[in-house]
Structure formats: structure tokens, C-alpha cells
Design a protein around this nucleic acid. Structure first.
Lengths: 170, 170
DNA sequence: GATTCTTCTTGAACAATGTTCATTTTCGTA
DNA sequence: TACGAAAATGAACATTGTTCAAGAAGAATC
């Protein structure tokens, strides 16, 4: 993304882009905010009736979003602020909220576990899913073949849940 | 990293940097090659006597490397080639080889499983570890609190192995 | 409607950085 | 020493983020 391209696409001058977004970081962060919102919206649309199905749905929804908007997700996770400025708190909070969406179904599946523990478990599980997807979707690094990704991801979730003591029939 | 800084640090001219590395991509890729080699060396130093301990050791070694060389790993995984040039095959192969290091111990722990399946499982497991670590070490996105990362990572490996049917005493 | 003040918009100019290439230096060889 | 090949140089260029004085547009007052 280039400031000049944005200006041309918006039909205004370069200066107006700066009036609107402040600087390049501001431009990127505006895009990233929309990305998190769109992602969250998509994740929240996953049915919450059955917790196990919900977990699979969340992983699958994340995979779908990552497939369709690979570059947006990269911008969200890989962008570094200029001049070591701190990353905006609101975006951090939104991302953490999105990653915490696995918490509710996990609590239902693991009612006896310490809630604080489940909170970490859910974010860790989402981080793992994120890692599998982000590396799996890289054209270059085929850690997991893309055509298998959907199936393998479901397998991963099942395996991990089994390790946590969740029986498949629950 | 800037070409001018490299030239100054090397005590030569800007042009000499270009004679040596071709272009900026060449410079980055040279660094990335050394990064993969250093990472692989470290991972291969993990004792292979006990497969379960080896898996924990690999995860822990990756965490250690990521902690000490966060920016090098980011460069390796996040760098995009200019002008849509293809990513060098040799680096791809080296990264895949590093990620495949979980294969041998997993085969020992899962002797009855289809080898091709275990190959994917091992890369998937490493991708998951990568995701947990890379997000956990981001100052900004504390998916998993850094001070807990080591312990949580071991817990993750254990949980996943349990899900795969590996008994803890094996 | 004219004048003045405020606000917004503009794009030329600047700074930083990757890149090129004619020139210069270095060095081996006759 | 003289010549030619190879290497090194850094000034100049292209791209891109950034600034800001000047101008345009609008609001307010008389």
C-alpha cells in the first residue's frame, strides 16, 4: 500500500490523506481495525449451540477468513510501528477478544477445570490454529498442504480436545 | 536493516554491498539462510535418546531461539520478495527440514500410524508450536503470558500427545 | 454583496532509502 | 613500466513517506 495510490484511489491529494490518517501508520492501523472487526464478526457468526461444533466452526471460520484475506491478516499481525511507538491498545484488545472466542465453548467442555486455566488454554489453542493456518497458507512454506488444511485442522482440534479429556461423543 | 548501514558496518562502499549481494533481497536472504542454519543447529543439538523428552526439547529449543533472536525469525517468516519473485527453494527446503525434526521422535511414539500421516502431524505440531511462540512473544499480543510460555508449551505438547494416544509413561 | 476569518485542500519540495553505472582504483601479467 | 581485467567507489537517480506554505472553499459579520 502506498500513500500516493490511496490518494489517487480516493480522488484526493496526498495531503488530504495525511489530514485524514495522520501518517502511514495511521493508514495501516485503520485498515487493521477494519480487519479485526470483520474477523470478529465472522467468528461471532459461528453457531454456539454445540460447543464442540463451535470450536470446529471457529477454526474453520478463521481458515476461511485467512484464505480470503491473507494480506489483511498479514498486515494485522506483521505490521511494526514506526519509531518504536506503542501499538494501539484498542486493536490489541480487539484481537485478544477475538482470540478469546474459544473460551466459552471450552468452558462448557471443561466445566471442572480452573477458569483461569481454561482462559489460557483457549488463547493457546487459537494461537496454535493461527500458526498452522498462517504457515499452511504460505504459498512457499507448505508445512501442511493447503488442500488438506481444512481436514487437518479439524483433526488437530479433535486431537487436542481428546488430550484435554473431552470425549468425542460429549 | 539498511544498505547504507551495512556498507558502513562492513567498512566498504554502497556499491560493494551490491556487488556482494545483488540487491536488498539478496542481503536479507543471506541473513535468513544463516538464521535457518543456526536454528537447525540448535534443534539438532537436542538429545534424541528419549522421544518424548526430545519433543519437549525441540519445542523448548525453538522457544529459546525465538526469544534470543526474535527479529531474525520475523525476517525469516515475514519477508516478502520484491516484484513477486519466487522465494528461494533452498531456504524453503531448509525450513521444512527444520520443521520435520519432530518427525523422528513422533514416529517412535506412534509406530502403528501411517508414516505419511505422521509426517503431516509433525509439521502441524511444529506449526502450532510456532504459532503459540510467535504470538506469545509479541510484546503487544499476549495470547499466552511470556513468563508462562515455557511451562504452557510443555503442557501443550503433553496434551497433544495424549490426544494422539501417547501415554505419559511411555 | 463585500469583507474578514476560519477551515480545508493542494501539490511542490524535502528526507530517507534502494538502485545504477561511469569513473577510479587495484592488481595480475607481459 | 605498461596494459588490461577485475573490483571498488560514490555521485546521481527513482521511489515513497512526510511537511508546509500557499491557495481554495466556506462561514460569519457587517
Amino acid at each position: 500500500m502506498k500513500v500516493r495510490d490511496v490518494a489517487e484511489a480516493a480522488g484526493c491529494s496526498i495531503g488530504s490523506v495525511y489530514n485524514e490518517f495522520g501518517d502511514f501508520d495511521g493508514l495501516i492501523l485503520t485498515v487493521n481495525r477494519e480487519t479485526v472487526q470483520a474477523l470478529t464478526e465472522r467468528l461471532k457468526a459461528v453457531p454456539a449451540d454445540d460447543p464442540l461444533r463451535q470450536l470446529h466452526g471457529l477454526a474453520d471460520a478463521y481458515l476461511g477468513f485467512a484464505t480470503e484475506h491473507a494480506n489483511l491478516l498479514r498486515s494485522l499481525f506483521e505490521h511494526r510501528m514506526e519509531d518504536d511507538r506503542p501499538f494501539p491498545e484498542d486493536i490489541l484488545a480487539m484481537v485478544m477478544d477475538a482470540f478469546a472466542l474459544m473460551h466459552a465453548p471450552l468452558v462448557r467442555l471443561l466445566p471442572d477445570r480452573d477458569p483461569g486455566d481454561v482462559a489460557v488454554l483457549s488463547r493457546m489453542m487459537f494461537s496454535a490454529v493461527h500458526g498452522i493456518i498462517s504457515l499452511g497458507l504460505e504459498e512457499r512454506m507448505v508445512a501442511v498442504p493447503p488442500e488438506q488444511l481444512r481436514e487437518r485442522l479439524a483433526q488437530f482440534v479433535d486431537t487436542h480436545l481428546a488430550g484435554l479429556g473431552v470425549t468425542r461423543s460429549a
